[in-house]
């Protein structure tokens, strides 16, 4: 069983990642051009002549065949040039790079919230001897599993934005607060530069979308972890620990939790990638300037280069998350650690 696991892992995974990304590029490129919806139709003024339309079409290269278009696009893409957004007249990579930090901060915050809530409730319900606590957690979990992120988002807006106006319902930061930051990671940089006003305002904007994204994930984490904790608790080593006089709290925190986290983490990784899908709707609801919101604008405007770039970025994020999950297995599981 002593396969040199990690020695092989990164190269194999990276190669697979490249192949996957290429597949995503081909499929999305073809699909985008086959499905109805003409970007030129969105741009022209009502009085444009057929010749004007033809000229415009040719200037974007859309009069060529799909394979030729793809080869041209790929030739530029490998150099990092993903073209110019049709609707916003800006470089696609520049647009995405400007929006990505907002989404990164939002999803990471949501992930932290989901992990804390999920692991916390799973451990609590494992430890609690009272039937009432267990039943309360179990039922709460059922509700969280059933309600999707956008319903939470709308509920939060109604509760904390309209009925009880304590949180801002749109945007990322109050425009009156000046930031002279080097990056667009406003939260991270605000923390590093110790700017409580900025951090506080950004968090106030993020808290509702982050919780909307986090609650469904927290429910999944809790459900899986609780099952894994119960299974580990029946293992001989946990029984032995009990006989050795360790309390249930210690057995759970020091013996079983670590082993139970391994399957939970695998699932969290997969579910975390789904959360990026969730950002598309949730960011829209809160007018949060991330790539999810950008994606909706791009689709509405049939902005082919921008959609194409966004699909690739989403694909890359999925792949990176999965690599990170694999790497963290080795941290938790000593059986994968030694080469």
């Amino acid at each position: 069983m002593r396969v040199p696991f990690l020695a092989v892992l990164p190269w194999r995974s990276l190669l697979l990642a490249m192949v996957t990304l290429f597949g995503v590029a081909v499929v999305s490129f073809v699909l985008l051009r086959v499905v109805p919806g003409d970007p030129i139709a969105m741009m022209i003024s009502p009085g444009a002549s057929p010749e004007d339309i033809m000229r415009l079409r040719a200037s974007y290269g859309l009069d060529r065949s799909i394979p030729v278009q793809f080869v041209i696009w790929l030739g530029h893409a490998v150099t990092g040039d993903f073209g110019t957004s049709i609707s916003m007249r800006q470089d696609v990579m520049h647009l995405i790079a400007g929006r990505l930090p907002a989404t990164t901060e939002l999803t990471l915050l949501a992930l932290v919230i989901a992990l804390v809530l999920g692991i916390g409730t799973a451990v609590l319900s494992t430890l609690s001897r009272r039937k009432l606590v267990g039943a309360a957690i179990e039922n709460g979990n059922g509700i969280l599993l059933a309600v999707p992120d956008f319903v939470w988002a709308l509920t939060f807006v109604v509760l904390f934005g309209v009925a009880w106006q304590i949180l801002p319902i749109s945007g990322r930061i109050d425009p009156r607060i000046s930031t002279d930051f080097a990056t667009n990671f406003v939260l991270f940089e605000g923390l590093l530069r110790l700017r409580p006003a900025v951090v506080g305002d950004v968090l106030a904007h993020m808290i509702m979308p982050a919780f909307a994204l986090a609650l469904p994930l927290a429910a999944v984490i809790m459900r899986v972890l609780k099952g894994a904790l119960e299974a580990e608790g029946q293992q001989d080593y946990a029984l032995l620990a009990k006989i050795r006089g360790r309390s249930k709290l210690r057995i759970t925190l020091q013996e079983t939790l670590r082993n139970a986290l391994v399957p939970t983490l695998a699932l969290t990784g997969v579910q975390f990638t789904f959360m990026f899908g969730g950002t598309v709707i949730v960011e829209r609801i809160f007018s949060y300037p991330g790539i999810g919101n950008l994606a909706i604008d791009a689709v509405i405007n049939r902005d082919l280069p921008l959609i194409q770039g966004l699909i690739l970025v989403f694909g890359l994020i999925f792949i990176l998350i999965n690599l990170a999950v694999e790497a963290s297995f080795a941290m938790l599981n000593p059986r994968l650690r030694h080469g």
């Binding site: 293992q235 001989d236 080593y237 029984l239 006989i243 006089g245 013996e255 082993n259 000593p334």
Partner: peptide, 23 residues
Amino acid sequence: RKLLGTEIALIPQDPMTALNPSR
């Protein structure tokens, strides 16, 4: 709890599962 482990101990059946794999 005080008796178990000090006065009474267990040699378990399956040594493969009786040791915590991550300690």
